[in-house]
């Protein structure tokens, strides 16, 4: 997914250039065949699978009217779920920004036995089905689990079925986003500046904060945002370890499911629409971030 994410960066760059060049016409002439066929198929498929169903969601919640919609998404329980989902995703994304950077740093800068294996393992959360991650984490961190028991006995710290458990699940699924966005930038960082800094007498710490950090910051922020966005929508890995307590450990996607289970279709659609809106905004911010990154990178 991150691979695809950086792919989209490239796609965006190229098309930004080409579209500007082809403004007067709908399509620039080309000798290649198949434009009508492929565009037609793409649009129909996109329309049927993605756009029509999403329109149904918005249509359903629009049935409430603006005031009804507003009332549905501002009940204390929904607001609390927003708070839980966003707050814990934020915490998880911050954890990932720190440790994801550490992992990327270690993978790029150092050599150690088993490095390639570790590198491959980083993508595990992308490949491992979320339900499997959910039951595994829940078994590990439950009060009678491998990690949960010592934490409980030594520190009285409860992880599973508390907000902390949710944060851990979100950290698990979000980690590769940060590593995979930071890693290539770190790899391409030219050594000259660091060498110059070192020869001018700067310490490693100074070189790090003055040269390395500014260079990778855009990538780090992008990885952070990707990890955050994924966390807000995550369901499978969280529900097994979340306590599902309204206002405390009830995440937004679960609230949608609960509303469905209570025959509250319009309410579920309203919360879904609100989340969709938030996703749009985040997608927008991500695109801006990536543009910012490209301009920094091109500098």
């Amino acid at each position: 997914m991150v691979a695809a994410g950086s792919g989209a960066v490239a796609a965006g760059r190229e098309s930004a250039v080409t579209v500007r060049a082809s403004l007067p016409l709908f399509r620039k002439p080309s000798v290649l065949p198949g434009f009508g066929l492929t565009l037609g198929f793409t649009l129909s498929y996109l329309g049927f699978i993605v756009l029509l169903p999403l329109a149904a969601l918005i249509l359903k919640s629009s049935g409430l009217g603006w005031s009804g919609f507003w009332a549905a998404v501002t009940t204390p329980r929904v607001l609390a779920a927003f708070q839980v989902s966003f707050g814990l995703s934020l915490a998880a994304a911050l954890t990932n920004a720190i440790f994801g950077f550490l992992v990327a740093w270690v993978l790029v800068r150092y050599d150690f036995p088993g490095k390639r294996l570790v590198d491959a393992l980083v993508d595990l959360p992308f490949a491992l089905p979320t339900a499997v991650a959910g039951i595994a984490l829940s078994a590990l961190y439950a009060p009678n689990g491998w990690i949960g028991r010592p934490l409980d006995e030594l520190f009285g710290l409860k992880v599973a079925f508390t907000p902390l458990g949710i944060a851990i699940a979100l950290t698990f699924i979000g980690l590769p986003f940060v590593v995979r966005t930071v890693q290539p930038i770190l790899q391409d960082l030219p050594p000259e500046e660091e060498e110059a800094a070192a020869s001018l007498g700067a310490s490693r710490l100074q070189a790090f904060s003055g040269i390395i950090l500014p260079a990778i910051l855009p990538a780090l922020v992008t990885g952070f945002a990707l990890s955050f966005a994924r966390g807000v929508g995550e369901y499978g890995s969280v529900i097994f370890i979340a306590g599902n307590m309204p206002g405390l450990t009830e995440i937004l996607p679960l609230l949608i499911v609960i509303k469905l289970e209570q025959y509250d279709y319009a309410g579920a659609a309203a919360v879904g629409t609100a989340m969709l809106g938030v996703s749009f905004v985040m997608l927008l911010i991500l695109n801006l971030l990536q543009q910012w990154m490209r301009s920094r990178h091109a500098r």
Partner: peptide
């Protein structure tokens, strides 16, 4: 392979399902 207007929008729409929560993907 082709240049046409609205290409950026098309690419964004193709990406859209990634930013939608799985639960919403079922709900719709």
């Amino acid at each position: 392979k082709f240049d046409f207007r609205g290409k950026n929008l098309l690419i964004t729409l193709i990406d859209l399902p990634f930013s939608v929560s799985p639960v919403i993907s079922g709900l719709i």
